[in-house]
Design a protein around this nucleic acid. Sequence first.
DNA 1: CTGCACTATGAATCGCTAA
DNA 2: GTTAGCGATTCATAGTGCA
Lengths: 299, 299
Amino acid sequence: MAKTKIQTNILYNGDSASLLTDLKKFPDKSVNFIITSPPYADKRKNSYEGVPSAKYVEWFLPITLQLYRILKENGSFILNIKEHPSNGERETYVLELILEMKKQGWFWIEEYCWYKKNSFPGKWPNRFRDSWERCLHFTRKKDFVMYQDAVKVPIGDWAAKRFKSMSENDFIRHVSKNNSHLARNVSNWLNKKKVYPHNVLVFEEEHRLYLGNVIETAVGVSSKNHSAIFPIELPSWFIKLFSKENDIILDPFIGSGTTAVAAIMLRRKYIGIELKKEYYHEAQKNINEIAEVINMKHP
Amino acid sequence: MAKTKIQTNILYNGDSASLLTDLKKFPDKSVNFIITSPPYADKRKNSYEGVPSAKYVEWFLPITLQLYRILKENGSFILNIKEHPSNGERETYVLELILEMKKQGWFWIEEYCWYKKNSFPGKWPNRFRDSWERCLHFTRKKDFVMYQDAVKVPIGDWAAKRFKSMSENDFIRHVSKNNSHLARNVSNWLNKKKVYPHNVLVFEEEHRLYLGNVIETAVGVSSKNHSAIFPIELPSWFIKLFSKENDIILDPFIGSGTTAVAAIMLRRKYIGIELKKEYYHEAQKNINEIAEVINMKHP
DNA sequence: CTGCACTATGAATCGCTAA
DNA sequence: GTTAGCGATTCATAGTGCA
């Protein structure tokens, strides 16, 4: 019997909790990478379906169970989330969610820190501005695919000066004289232009998709109420890191379509789900627009 | 009956778990601020007491219970910690610790992110370099004291005021006389830039107190092989934020004395506990040295 | 005193091999 | 099976000595 093939480059308008259980739309082990920024607990009540924080884990777990089923075995799932303060304290539902997802079989590989230099302004007596969010990395297996070379960054300024003065010692393997087992061979770095990044993400500029406009520079606050959860740089970075061209990218809470736009620009296939009609239409519009631009260049 | 008064500006050589239960040494509600970086699970086996990660929460909870008792009601506790990977996954003991501490009565107010720009190098197939650590903020009450204005000013300003009429030559003389890493660090520290009031901490340069020749003679390794857990900027920032002059600062795992040195420079009183004899002696040496520098100008 | 060459190393992690 | 030891790998900055 022919295996059901997953339909890609499609946007669903509906509820992830039920849509994801559809085995025809979402067969087992059919997508390469999942990234999403789910609606936060008790927030965005005016623009989304609020989920009470007491029920957040309970609400989200059936969805992560389906995502586990749908993800390919060597794939990754990036969950962008940050618990809000409530009554002066940080909520604990994210901590509980991690522990519960592990019981579902997920491996919690890493927690990337997205450092938002231009965080929302404000002043409170008990805390400072919140300038970072968690990007939790989950997998089904420990030997997942990771294309580290795709996200290399330019080497620091120190290198130019350092490489100018290479001694002979720099070209042989050098073992330091103390007890550290560190070895180094500086010549490995000769003429190196790019280095591997670390687990704190800082984007010099953050571009968000807004309702009404396609791509708009938005460092700071917009007058518009409906913004994408994350800037396009964020899904782009993880899509490059955890997928290759023509792979399938899923975002079950796609909002105004940022993940799909990033996927299209990076020559991946997208699948998006969005509950709210306005967001769904906006996402479709953004996708059509970027697809048109891409097709102009690659007909 | 007279209430027991807590003894300050003292370093204990012993085990926090038992020392902190001493009601005479540590009366109820007697310290204003606690900051520490406990030994991490399963690490530093050769230089500290390793705690297996499976037993970490169980080991630490009795200590946090005493800290709760000892902390003043409007005080704060900063816990600097980061879970290591184990078998390719992040451990969960920090998450569990937060949940358990809340059961003890602690409020989990905030999680500050300490972004370490020059993290340890390395490359692995499943992760990048770890460049951040958690600084968990706990309190007994929701209306704790927080001196936000104290961290808005550049470090250089308060330091310049503190050492107003001390010439640079005084430092140079001190450095050359003692050949001291500490004094050199401090003199560098005087011209430092401003820090930003949000919940991601970045220190431009990190100054650590180094263990000197105690280890060298005892173990036969380099004198610079063992460094303080955190740079002096880290405790300094939080001490300024959560205490005022003459307040009492406690660090139950003080290592080479960084917290005490920061407290002295900021005119607070310190209490430190350290289990390992070499660290204890090194901390005492660092404390004596900074006290001498301070007294040069304030006899 | 400054600049340049060169050394040292920081709460690292993974994978392989030997016992 | 399990664990312990060691090699391989990597970026950025501070410190030292000398011209």
